[in-house]
């Protein structure tokens, strides 16, 4: 059974004028997959990601996460699932500015009620794995974009989630660090088997994932297997941007 199963997901935003964003999404994503959802802006890819991350509700259809129906959850239940099952990586990093790198990484464990000492140890362990141990006590404004995103990745990983959702993770990075971040995500997927879903509009980013889901005007267009990254016209030596 797939980790994520979507059946006929519909979502309409109603800000004065109804906007039908998702028009019946059917999708299966298995455990350990490294997937990208690709589409132009306004295609509904971010909305889909928000629904996958239980940050937003959907109007009709069914969303099964690890065999559990995610529908009309209370905020508390949603928070619990997000905390235990899902890690988030954002385009603008979304680190808390007045906390140091290690404190930012610790925060999800704080909400799990893990003791200060244990969560500090785990955060430091993770940061050193990502080569950031010397930056642990720095505040986000003292870090480069790539370092910030790696801190954010560490924060997403600290709870050992089943899924990592990345919303334009390279959107604020230059091409070199973009590549590094994507390689990091790829190796995390290979090493720990965590399911990674990346939302992007950049083909180069999508190309570094194993499966590309094209979304257009709220409908899934095609699903492309991308096992051999170098075969793709965007692969090989093409620069990401």
């Amino acid at each position: 059974m797939s980790l994520i199963q979507l059946y006929g997901i519909n979502k309409t935003y109603d800000n004065g004028q109804p906007l039908h964003v998702l028009k019946g999404i059917d999708l299966n994503i298995g455990e350990g997959e490294y997937v990208s959802i690709m589409g132009a802006s306004g295609s509904g890819k971010s909305t889909l990601l928000n629904i996958l991350g239980i940050l937003d509700n959907y109007d009709s259809g069914e969303y099964w996460l690890d065999g559990k129906l995610i529908k009309n959850l209370s905020e508390t239940q949603a928070a619990h699932y997000r905390n235990h099952m899902i890690g988030f990586i954002f385009q603008s990093f979304n680190l808390i500015p007045f906390k140091t790198a290690v404190e930012n990484v610790e925060l999800p464990l704080f909400y799990q009620g893990v003791s200060r000492k244990v969560r500090h140890e785990r955060a430091m362990e993770l940061l050193s794995k990502l080569g950031l141990d010397s930056w642990a006590e720095h505040h986000p404004n003292e870090l480069s974009g790539g370092q910030k995103q790696r801190v954010a990745i560490a924060r997403a990983l600290i709870t050992n989630p089943r899924i990592i959702l990345a919303d334009e993770p390279t959107g604020a990075l230059d091409s070199k660090t973009s590549l590094e971040v994507m390689e990091l995500l790829g190796s995390l997927n290979k090493d720990s088997g965590v399911t990674i879903i990346v939302v992007t509009h950049e083909s180069g980013v999508a190309n570094s994932t194993d499966k590309i889901i094209h979304i257009k005007d709220g409908i899934i267009g095609s699903i492309e297997e991308n096992r051999y990254h170098n075969l793709s016209p965007f692969g090989g030596n093409t620069v990401m941007k």
Binding site: G53, A79, H80, N94
Partner: peptide, 9 residues
């Protein structure tokens, strides 16, 4: 952010 990473209301 706090809510996204698991803080309950």
């Amino acid at each position: 952010i706090r809510r996204a990473i698991g803080a309950t209301p």
